[in-house]
């Protein structure tokens, strides 16, 4: 097996790595780039805890191979706040009490971010649909939707 070279943009920085190809994007981000906000909840694209934004679109990093991000632009939760300034969603998630155990939070915020980048004024139904790929087990959907709505208002 040959190593492969992957160059991509991670959280606004151009990065490259030489790595064995038999790893998932999730594993590469966590192990090689220390982006541990990317969580593995189910490992089969059901729970959304491993969500990252690829070219602005949410994708499950547990269902992608590392080599598939060659040339792509990725955003993980580590890259959301800019120069120490929290993103509006990070603020409203805290204020609305939308964070409990916190394991679904990174994916949840990124899915919400992707929605707001495309549609700055979504309806409650649009928010629900956009977050339908992110499971929360501590029963926080109401507060999570509220947090997204608070971010729209700001």
């Amino acid at each position: 097996m040959e190593k492969i070279k992957i160059a991509f943009n991670l959280n606004d920085q151009d990065v490259s790595i030489e790595t064995m190809p038999n790893k998932r994007l999730l594993d590469m981000l966590r192990e090689d780039f220390n982006c541990t906000s990317v969580k593995e909840g189910c490992g089969e694209g059901e729970c959304g805890a491993c969500t990252v934004l690829r070219n602005g679109e949410p994708v499950t990093s547990c269902t992608m191979l590392a080599g598939q991000v060659q040339g792509e632009r990725l955003l993980t939760l580590e890259g959301l706040s800019k120069n120490g300034e929290l993103d509006i969603l990070q603020k409203t998630f805290m204020e609305a009490g939308a964070v409990q155990c916190g394991f679904c939070t990174p994916g949840m915020i990124l899915s919400a971010k992707a929605l707001l980048m495309k549609n700055p004024h979504p309806s409650r139904d649009e928010i629900r649909r956009a977050l339908s790929g992110n499971l929360c087990r501590c029963t926080g959907y109401t507060k999570i939707f509220k947090a997204v709505e608070m971010a729209i208002e700001e």
Partner: peptide
């Protein structure tokens, strides 16, 4: 189909 993430992939 699935979720937004799955539909994007």
């Amino acid at each position: 189909v699935g979720s937004p993430q799955i539909r994007n992939l």
